[in-house]
Every structure is written in C-alpha cells, then in structure tokens.
Amino acid sequence: MIPTVVTPAIPFLGAVVMALIGAVVGVSVRTLTTRLSGAEPWRGACEIACATGGALATAATWPAAAALALLMWWCVSCSGVDLLVRRLPNVLTLGGGLAVVTIGACAGHGRAAVVGAALLTGVMLTAHLLSPRSLGAGDVKLAIGLGAAAGVAGAQAWMIALLLPPLLTAVVGSVVLLYRRLGRVSSGERSSGSTVVPHGPSMCVATMLAVLSAG
C-alpha cells in the first residue's frame, strides 16, 4: 500500500479564496471611501488591506470567519475615511455599529455585544467630554461596533480594545512628528506646531488584534 500524505490544503486554499474575495471587496471599499471622504486613498491600499483581512479571518471557523471578515472590511472603510479627512461619518459608525450588534445577537451573543458596546462607548464618551480635541465624536460612535465585537470575544479582548488604542496613537503620532521635524531640519525650515493623528485606525487595529487573539 502506498502511504498517503495528508497536507493542510483546505485551510491554505480557504485563506487564498478569502484573500481573493477580500481584494474584490477592497475595490468597493475604495469606492465607498472615496465617495464618503471626497479624496482617493492610496492606490491598492484598500484592496491589500481587505485581502489581508480576508485571509486572517480564516483563523476562525465558519461562520465566525465570515463575520470576522466583514468586521475587518468595515474597519478598513472606517480607517480609510478617518485617515483621509480626520472624520468618521455616521453612515459608517452608527450603521456599522448596529450591524455588529445585530450579528452578535443573531449568533447568540446579544447580551455580550450590547454590554461591550455600552461600556466602551461610555468610556469613550467620558474621554470626549473631558477632552473634545483629543477624542472626536466620531470615535465615540465607532466604539459602538468595536465594543460589541470585543465584548463578544470576551473580557480580555474588550480590555485590549480599550487600553491599546491610546498607545498605538501615541506611538504613531511620535513617529510622524519626528519624521516631520527631521524633514524640516534637513530642508532648513523652522519646526513648529504639532501633528494630529486620527484615533479611529488605532481603535480598529487594536480591536481586530484583540478579537484575533481571543481565537
């Protein structure tokens, strides 16, 4: 009898298929991002991000993988608009938040989704009221969907979604500020002012890492 070699072909093929689907979805995400922001994102950025998200979603079992892919593609849309115009439109934040809570409820995790959304939104709202310039109203609305997703993933994931974004934004802001100052020094310009980094992308990245780490 000839021995049979078993290889993990199905998971690999699944990741490839989801990456291809993500790339196709990325075209629609780019169109949506351009329409909502009035500016066009970097060519290929949405497609690559959505393809990566689709491939990473296969770490979960079906149908959780489909829900995770949708969450990632929504995060790409929100992050793209926020990076381009420093604004998060209601159609994305509120519409996406409602969709995440609804999907969580349909999957039997309605209470966790609602509690996670309420707690994260409450924390973000408090921060916004204390310092409106540091945290916009759009970030508060974005917390609805992200809090729901993290709540479904568990308490540890929710804590990551809460604590990691400020650190990510601070690191990115420091790098951007240093880059601009070095550019001004090399060109002989005077370094002045500060840089504003949108907080939405950090919230999205932190939540996706939290959900993926929760398995």
Score class of each variant (00 low, 15 high):
residue 1 M to E: 07
residue 2 I to K: 15
residue 7 T to C: 08
residue 10 I to P: 00
residue 10 I to N: 06
residue 11 P to K: 15
residue 14 G to Q: 08
residue 14 G to C: 10
residue 15 A to R: 11
residue 17 V to N: 09
residue 19 A to Y: 03
residue 19 A to R: 00
residue 22 G to D: 00
residue 24 V to T: 09
residue 24 V to N: 04
residue 30 R to L: 13
residue 37 S to I: 10
residue 37 S to V: 08
residue 39 A to G: 06
residue 40 E to S: 14
residue 41 P to Q: 10
residue 41 P to I: 08
residue 44 G to E: 06
residue 48 I to P: 03
residue 49 A to Y: 01
residue 50 C to F: 02
residue 51 A to Y: 02
residue 51 A to D: 00
residue 52 T to D: 03
residue 53 G to N: 01
residue 55 A to F: 12
residue 58 T to I: 09
residue 58 T to M: 14
residue 64 A to G: 09
residue 69 A to W: 05
residue 71 L to E: 03
residue 78 C to M: 14
residue 80 G to H: 00
residue 81 V to M: 01
residue 84 L to W: 01
residue 85 V to G: 02
residue 85 V to N: 04
residue 86 R to N: 11
residue 87 R to S: 07
residue 90 N to C: 02
residue 92 L to A: 06
residue 93 T to W: 00
residue 94 L to V: 10
residue 96 G to W: 01
residue 96 G to N: 03
residue 96 G to Y: 00
residue 98 L to I: 12
residue 101 V to K: 07
residue 104 G to E: 01
residue 104 G to D: 04
residue 107 A to T: 04
residue 112 A to P: 03
residue 114 V to M: 07
residue 114 V to T: 06
residue 118 A to G: 05
residue 118 A to M: 07
residue 127 A to L: 14
residue 128 H to W: 10
residue 130 L to E: 02
residue 134 S to E: 10
residue 134 S to R: 13
residue 143 A to W: 01
residue 150 A to Y: 05
residue 153 A to I: 09
residue 158 W to S: 14
residue 161 A to T: 12
residue 167 L to F: 08
residue 170 A to T: 14
residue 172 V to Q: 09
residue 173 G to C: 13
residue 173 G to K: 10
residue 176 V to F: 09
residue 181 R to S: 13
residue 181 R to D: 07
residue 182 L to C: 10
residue 187 S to K: 05
residue 188 G to H: 03
residue 193 G to C: 05
residue 200 G to M: 04
residue 201 P to T: 09
residue 201 P to R: 07
residue 201 P to E: 04
residue 201 P to I: 02
residue 202 S to I: 04
residue 204 C to G: 04
residue 205 V to Y: 06
residue 208 M to I: 11
residue 211 V to Y: 02
residue 211 V to S: 02
residue 213 S to Y: 10
residue 215 G to K: 11
